[in-house]
Nucleic acid binder design. Structure first.
Length: 257
DNA sequence: ATGGCTACGATCCGTAGA
């Protein structure tokens, strides 16, 4: 099973690139973030024609998440149960016996801001949710845009970013709290090129300079980690005209499907 | 140099992303 996650930064603008990427990369499951689109306007028919079922939680202008799958999606749950939130950031579904939780974690804007506090509260709620999901589903993946660069090697210029939002210690502690539930960062299970990132600023020639952050991740439960044979980031879509600022991240699993 | 792109939904600029 080929699992992937991609923050598309507007499903409407990126639909042609998404359809091309589905055809070339052929993921079995793809988690999408930042749809910026209401459910009613989600291009379900085009995606279905490409061979993918979808579970969508969307809103106008901001946020919005979806799970695409070549096989049917079961037991769809939107949001973090018990955590009241207007912002559509989480959707979960079961595919081929694998529980998939798609997340668009808050940006946090700036350390000490109201949005930063929300980010930390949100991560605490996510941890509570996942603690239960890990128990319920031995085969679990949490995939998405976490808006946290876990370590300095995930940051192009750690000195410049020191203490900033996305790398601050409380955010990294929130990330490690997810790992402490028994989840593994699939990308780091394998040898990887140095300076591997998943997001590059549109400004300042960020991509050309490889001035990026690795903030898009696929976490795997122990059972899935044992079945994982590869982890990667596909930079190709970031090279296109009018790209998303994020590239897709992938994990390959040897599970029967 | 604290900006610099991009998308959106409201106008001819503000908000947000990271």
């Amino acid at each position: 099973m080929k699992l992937a996650t991609w923050n598309v930064n507007s499903i409407k603008v990126r639909l042609p690139q998404l359809l091309d990427w589905l055809a070339s990369a052929q993921p079995d499951v793809l988690c999408l973030q930042e749809l910026k689109c209401e459910e009613a306007k989600f291009p379900r028919a085009e995606i279905e024609a490409a061979g993918y079922a979808s579970a969508v939680s969307g809103q106008k202008t901001y946020n919005g998440v979806a799970i695409l799958s070549r096989t049917p999606l079961a037991d769809v749950v939107a949001g973090i149960p018990g955590f009241a939130d207007e912002q559509k950031r989480v959707i979960a579904a079961t595919v081929q016996g694998v529980r998939v939780v798609c997340v668009y974690c808050p940006n946090g804007q700036a350390v000490g801001s109201e949005k930063y506090d929300y980010k930390l509260r949100w991560f605490a709620a996510l941890k509570g949710y996942l603690a239960e999901e890990v128990r319920k589903y031995p085969r679990l993946t949490v995939a998405g845009d976490f808006n946290v660069a876990p370590e300095d090697r995930d940051v192009h210029d750690p000195k410049a970013w020191e203490g900033q939002v996305h790398v601050s210690e409380p955010e990294r502690a929130a990330w490690r709290a997810l790992l402490a539930l028994g989840l593994q960062d699939s990308f780091r299970m394998f040898e990887q090129p140095e300076k591997s990132y998943s997001w590059w600023d549109y400004r300042m020639l960020g991509f050309r300079r490889n001035a990026g952050l690795r903030i898009d991740h696929l976490l795997l439960s122990q059972d899935l980690a044992r079945a994982c044979s590869a982890g990667s980031i596909d930079k190709a879509p970031r090279k296109l005209e009018r790209p998303s600022d994020h590239a897709p991240a992938l994990a390959e699993l040897n599970v029967t499907r």
